[in-house]
């Protein structure tokens, strides 16, 4: 940010007010940073954690986003990954690049693309979403996806934070995916696909920049998706103990 500001400040040097031959007092026009839309950025790892499942599966997981832009338009990069430590393979690897504009007091609309490049077949999706703050302080993020195979699905994320104190915070998350059509190749059946529910107790150690946490995560697959997983020798329900940190800078 400071470099942005000084860049604009430099542009100010170039600007000279209107030369007003008539008057002694010159009226200049404001071309300073203040008169420009405020550009800002941020990087946040909502989750950066190690997961250990009830069947001794070990995962490294992150869920992060970075943005750059103004109040009126932001570019946002969202990234989620689940890395299976023993098999040295990505169970999940999603990267999204979206543009984001405000549509109401508390909500933004997003549009962009999502690239899934885990172990196995890749997918590219078009993304249309809404994210914001719902009444009673629920952070919600709802997205509609259309894959390059023509399959459509939807995902809803919700998060609620309970302040035990102003530093000990219990965060509850729920993530549900619904497919409107089957994508057998990547193991997705029609209907409710999966849910992931998490409960993490964190402590804000350094401002809100570094907050270590412990927690539990429950993952469940449903319907045809569960059947596909079973057929493939995978599990349909997992419990994880997690340890990690929320990071923002």
């Amino acid at each position: 940010m400071s470099c942005i500001r000084s860049l604009v400040a430099v542009s100010l040097i170039a600007s000279v007010g209107f030369s007003t031959a008539v008057t002694a007092q010159e009226m200049i026009s404001d071309t300073t940073a203040r008169k420009q839309p405020l550009t800002t950025w941020g990087v946040q790892f909502e989750e950066f954690e190690y997961r250990y499942s009830d069947d001794d599966e070990e995962l490294g997981v992150w869920n992060a986003d970075a943005f750059y832009g103004t109040d009126d338009f932001k570019v946002r990069l969202l990234t989620t990954g689940e890395y299976e430590i023993e098999e040295q393979a990505y169970e999940t690897l999603e990267n999204q690049l979206v543009g984001q504009i405000p549509i109401s007091k508390f909500f933004d609309a997003k549009a962009g693309v999502r690239f899934d490049t885990p172990e196995g077949p890749d997918r590219t999706y078009a993304v249309l979403g809404v994210a914001g703050l719902a009444p009673q302080w629920f952070e919600v993020d709802a997205n509609l996806y259309v894959s390059d195979e023509g399959e459509t699905s939807a995902e809803l994320d919700a998060e609620y934070e309970l302040l035990l104190t102003n530093y000990w915070i219990l965060a509850a998350t729920l993530d549900a995916t619904v497919a409107f059509s089957e994508d057998r190749e990547i193991g997705v059946g029609k209907g409710l696909v999966s849910t992931e529910a998490g409960l993490r107790l964190r402590y804000d150690l350094v401002d809100r920049a570094f907050s270590p946490y412990v927690g539990v995560v429950h993952e469940q697959k449903y319907g045809d998706t569960a059947d596909f997983a079973e057929t493939g020798g995978g599990s349909t329900e997992d419990w994880f103990a997690v340890i990690g940190a929320r990071i923002a800078f």
Binding site: L38, W41, G42, L164, T165, R208, A248
Partner: peptide, 19 residues
């Protein structure tokens, strides 16, 4: 300024708690 833009309650440590 950047932190406030990112998280408006970034600095607020007097929020209402369970207690």
């Amino acid at each position: 300024m950047r932190n406030l833009k990112m998280m408006p309650d970034y600095y607020n440590r007097e929020q209402q708690t369970v207690g």
